[in-house]
């Protein structure tokens, strides 16, 4: 392992194991991602026989896929989640599946916590059969702006410097680039905003803990938040609150769709195979709604 790791794998397993028993109470972000992924899946007309649910949490997506008649293998980086879903425990960037094992790999809410996401995508390309589909959704760049500014305020006031507490996040454009780089074709990356209203802003933190989404950065901040920090966080969140004291926090969700290359996929037309001249097509139409304005030479 020569490349430095962003996230602490051991800590991530611990956080997931701790979150597992109470997960249903905090699963709303994952549920929202799952719903969007299933909408996208239902738009695809072809049938899938064998799927991998990567980052399966308690098995809720696995169940939904089985309900659609798809055979599913579940996998999670946390033992308890893997056990709950009846799956296997493995890391996304060290996948233990043979090449061409699945025709669908689907992942809800974990790609933002993977150390080597380009490596994970390359592996997913390998374990997919030709013309297999990858569908993934996760929390991306711009998420949790209020929480971010509140913890930064606490660090600046009491610690004197900003500590790495919020994960590096992937934006939509980078997601698209990553897909192409990993060799996927017909790729789409798009975003969706999930706004969550909190009448008690401190519930944001318990929700993040409950969905195993708290800080996993390997260089853990030396300073732990004390009572003064929490007071500053509360103050900062209160200053961003609406009139009734509620805070609306945002989750910017990023979705990735990509196909592994296959022989029968739509291809660009062969060069020179067009029957019509582009020059003709681009000529202005005789009766268009185009307005020509001629400006006088001199003012």
């Amino acid at each position: 392992m020569s490349a430095p790791e962003i996230f602490n794998r051991k800590l991530r397993r611990l956080r997931r194991d701790r979150a597992a028993p109470g997960f249903p109470a905090h699963a709303f972000v994952v549920d929202h991602i799952i719903e969007s992924l299933l909408d996208r899946l239902d738009l695809v007309s072809r049938r899938f026989d064998r799927a991998l649910d990567l980052g399966c949490h308690d098995g809720r997506l696995t169940k939904a896929l089985r309900g659609r008649g798809i055979e599913v293998v579940s996998a999670d980086a946390g033992y308890r989640f893997a056990k709950m879903a009846g799956g296997i425990q493995c890391d996304e960037d060290r996948l233990p599946f043979a090449d061409a094992s699945f025709d669908l790999v689907i992942s809800a809410g974990v790609f933002d916590q993977v150390n080597d996401l380009p490596g994970a995508l390359t592996l997913i390309g390998r374990i997919l059969k030709p013309d297999g589909l990858l569908l993934a959704g996760f929390t991306g760049a711009g998420s949790l702006p209020m929480t971010r500014s509140a913890v930064m305020a606490a660090d600046i006031v009491h610690g004197g410097a900003v500590a790495p507490r919020i994960h590096p996040q992937i934006d939509v454009r980078a997601a698209g680039d990553l897909l192409s780089r990993a060799g996927f074709v017909l790729t789409v990356a798009d975003g969706e905003t999930l706004s969550v209203r909190y009448s008690n802003p401190f519930r944001i933190l318990s929700d993040l803990r409950g969905m195993a989404a708290t800080n996993l950065i390997d260089a853990q901040p030396a300073r732990h938040f004390n009572r003064q920090d929490l007071a500053t966080i509360a103050e900062s969140l209160a200053s961003q609150a609406e009139r009734d004291g509620a805070v609306t926090e945002r989750f910017e969700l990023v979705f990735m769709t990509g196909w592994s290359p296959g022989p029968n996929q739509p291809q660009p037309a062969r060069r020179g195979s067009g029957g019509k001249s582009l020059a003709d097509a681009l000529k202005p139409a005789p009766f268009s709604d185009r307005v020509d304005i001629t400006r006088p030479d001199k003012p």
Partner: peptide, 11 residues
């Protein structure tokens, strides 16, 4: 294989 769950982690 812990309680039916294959643990495929290097560590």
């Amino acid at each position: 294989i812990c309680d039916g769950v294959p643990v495929l982690l290097v560590e």
